[in-house]
């Protein structure tokens, strides 16, 4: 479904990490870990197609959707109106969605368990609930691979758990491959099916090759260093 073949990632001709190869199949929930500045966000953006790899290829079937971090909760929009903004190119000139699109919005909202909040102003929902709305917004774009950069950043414990469980549910019930970066290694590791990361030595590590424990230990080392 998604094939990353020997890519190098970096900025302005300077590679941060080289020799990254892995495959992702539908329904996988993958944690991407590493220290600050190790290249997690660059890897996510390269996989999503926002940045070009310096070498190698990224190929896959379906749509890859990246959910950025730090989307503001703008007052004056209901949660449903916000989710609808995710399918910008499919709505009409006034931002109205077709019946089919409204149904997929209904489905995404229901899957994430935020249906009771759909008419609530987004400035009034919790950060965790808003993060779920961001995921719902990405789902309306018919994502086959969902990439989330630090979806649990700045969230309290309850909200963090709520978002991580939602990600696992999306992967399991929709068959969507989910890749998310996080610093909350322990909590995230408990919900993910696989871990990939960038070690303290700048090497790409994958739990499908060396086991979850090994990758985690390398990530812990990198975090201690970072």
């Amino acid at each position: 479904m998604l094939r990353i073949n020997d890519i190098a990632i970096g900025y302005s001709n300077k590679a941060i990490v080289d020799g990254i190869s892995f495959e992702v199949v539908p329904g996988e929930c993958i944690l991407v870990c590493g220290a600050n500045g190790s290249g997690k966000t660059t890897l996510m953006k390269t996989v999503a197609g926002v940045m070009k790899p310096m070498r190698g290829t990224v190929s896959g079937d379906g749509t890859m959707v990246l959910v950025p971090t730090g989307i503001p909760k703008v007052k004056g929009f209901t949660l449903r109106e916000f989710v609808r903004t995710g399918c910008y190119s499919e709505t009409d000139i006034w931002g109205r969605a077709s019946k089919a699109l409204e149904s997929s919005i209904d489905e995404a909202i229901a899957l994430l368990g935020i249906g009771h909040l759909e008419d609530r102003d987004i400035s009034e929902v919790s950060d965790g609930e808003f993060q779920k709305a961001c995921i719902a917004s990405a789902l309306t774009r018919r994502a086959s691979v969902l990439l989330l950069d630090e979806p649990t950043a700045f969230l309290d414990v309850d909200s963090r758990t709520m978002v991580l469980q939602a990600l696992r549910k999306v992967a399991a019930e929709k068959g969507i491959a989910v890749l998310f970066s996080s610093h909350d290694i322990h909590e995230s590791a408990s919900v993910c099916t696989r871990i990939i990361g960038i070690s303290s030595t700048g090497r790409f590590v994958d739990s499908s090759l060396s086991g979850k424990e090994d990758v985690l230990s390398q990530c812990f080392a990198s975090l201690r260093k970072g």
Binding site: F77, F82, T85, Y88
Partner: peptide, 15 residues
Amino acid sequence: DIILFGEEYSELSGA
């Protein structure tokens, strides 16, 4: 409307 949610979100949403 969408630009209120940031440039990155807008671009990633196809705006």
